[in-house]
Design a protein around this nucleic acid. Structure first.
Lengths: 201, 201, 201, 201
DNA sequence: TGAGTTAGAATGGCACCACCCGTC
DNA sequence: GACGGGTGGTGCCATTCTAACTCA
């Protein structure tokens, strides 16, 4: 199973999402994370600590990826139209993380417009960095997306300082000392479940 | 005076910074904002409401920019090394917004490394989206940057929902109804002052 | 029903206990609190704000107390042996608040020794200001008291800043703005229940 | 030098203060602690373990106290006006421990009112059982006392479980095994220093 | 090898702040 | 429109338990 994570805009938790989806899938079967983002964020995350799956850059892929059951790809931000077509055609699901704010939604709309010109694109939008109650930004954006009939994960990822600590420590969020680490990990586990039920009903 | 805003990573408040620095400079003299980001975030911000200065894309620049005293340029994310050289050589100050988190700092280091290979680059780092007390992420990252002798604005921009509302309303942050709108605007005004005293001591 | 609150040692929550037991009983029937402590703590508590029952000093009692169903008496600290005998013989239950520390227990032992020389004294010990987990001071002292066959309330009162705020505001603890106000009140409600089931089985 | 410790209200650390001031003074010269509190808390403290100075009750005083350079007296709680006059006139300094809460302050005000009717009373207020950060109860009460021009020790005594352990073990706080024992002892040492500089400038 | 010492995990109370939603 | 209640995230501290580590 190949999961690609992409977004037009940076800073929306693309790398965090790739890492934690890979961590979830690793719980099911051998998983590989390919860091195709020129910033090499996922690689430096892995370098600072230890992740339960290997992380490689896109040049090391050929000799490896048929040893793995699942592959998660962290792509560069702002893919071109052509890039998008390639991405979509080579994966089972394209995950589009976005924060619940106007600027990110703007960029999301551009991406989706491009996607919908492709034949039967498999993609799903993931709301990330959702601010805590009483902000309703998360709910508002979700219902907005749903009313636009855009495929969105039912579960979103809340904004927790635990994710920052995890990035700093170089581990998945469940590996750090934080009162909200468990809740943060549950969010990604729920999203991982949604992916599994979508692709293997 | 030409101010360029750039960053390797998206989602760090690049567009917000460009808009509010332009709003500040407009208070001194006629100012133009050039939106050179392919996402056209600044343009869509302007389109949703009204900004006190004109916003144009990079193709409309030639016939305009000598009518203006100040020009702020919102560049695309992830400029190449060559792009950076061009940006730096054509402006009086390069502003590098960054959020106080590891992933953004990673990208910042790449940018700065590139910059320091250029002759006498004029740039300054701006901390944005600083989480509220009791988080000390802002202070920690600032002292980290200072201990690395990187030029950093003394004032940072705090994370306020008011900025989201401003983006949605298409106005600068002082133009919206929000208890923290004033504080948010003060942050950018202080940064604008720092720029003025740096460039016109 | 007449409840007397007494202790050899001050600072163990005697006044707080008297006030909150009266507040609980007021929920059942008309209740009067008599402040017989020379420090007049209960009266000054009532004066700072508003309590749901009247508070009077011991000189105002005669003309009043037959209008009330329940009477709670806050006595002075360090009653003499003779005082104790009088107290016990004129109430249905003597409540002895004590904090879970050695110095308070010392004083408690003196009180209890005196009490046990009286015929069939009705009294029960209430643990107050119990420090939070992981301190086990509360549990340790409770089992110590039980192993000495001293009648002790099953529920203790935990140490919460909410009680201080309540004293300052002049209201019962449920009347203030504090995240732990509800838990604090539940403690006293449970103790009140224990009293009711003891006296009206 | 004769130091008397008194308070209208119990449970504010009167005995703990007397013991630790005596322990401090013992470091300067031979010191005697007179336990005049009917609860005999200091005596039972001494009995449970070993203190570096003798503790006697008020009946054993006559034949002893001229052998000692310093004498600390732990008085009973709630002295009458007459008691207070006697206490003040027979000591060099009256130390009034109080916890930073409204009920204790109430009692303190009564004491101070009585004191100020005496000629040139030498007394100083000591804040005890100060709750830890982030509570600011200690600071608030101290500035309140200072704004009322009441003589207050600059250093307060923080609330530490170490004091309970010390009482249980029958030793001064520095004699027990506890991570905060040293900090607790420093608090009293600082207060002792303040006394010395006040009385022997 | 055993005992004392220290380092870290876990827990809970607390204050602060940002945010939304009522009321006045 | 300002103000207060309510909610939730975050950091900090005190405390205890456990585990590792040192020293005799």
């Amino acid at each position: 199973m190949i999961i690609t994570v992409a977004s037009f805009k940076g800073g929306v938790g693309k790398t965090t999402t790739a890492i934690h989806l890979a961590a979830f899938l690793q719980g099911q079967a051998k998983t590989l994370l390919i860091d195709a983002d020129p910033n090499r964020s996922a690689l430096s995350w892995a370098q600072r600590g230890e992740l339960p799956f290997p992380v490689v850059d896109e040049w090391q892929v050929d000799q490896l990826h048929n040893h793995y059951h699942h592959v998660v790809i962290d792509t560069q931000a702002r893919p071109t139209q052509a890039d998008l077509a390639t991405l979509v055609s080579h994966c089972h699901l394209l995950v589009l993380p976005t924060t619940p704010d106007i600027l990110a939604l703007d960029a999301l709309v551009l991406t989706v417009n491009h996607l919908q010109q492709l034949p039967a694109p498999q993609y799903q939008i993931l709301l990330t960095a959702i601010p805590p109650h009483p902000s309703r930004a998360g709910d508002e954006v979700r219902s907005l997306l749903q009313s636009a009939h855009l495929p969105t994960f039912a579960r979103g990822i809340r904004r927790y300082a635990a994710f920052q600590k995890a990035a700093q420590a170089g581990v998945p969020v469940y590996g750090i000392q934080d009162p909200k680490a468990e809740a943060a990990w549950q969010d990604y586990k729920a999203v991982g479940q949604e992916i599994l039920t979508r692709l293997h009903p």
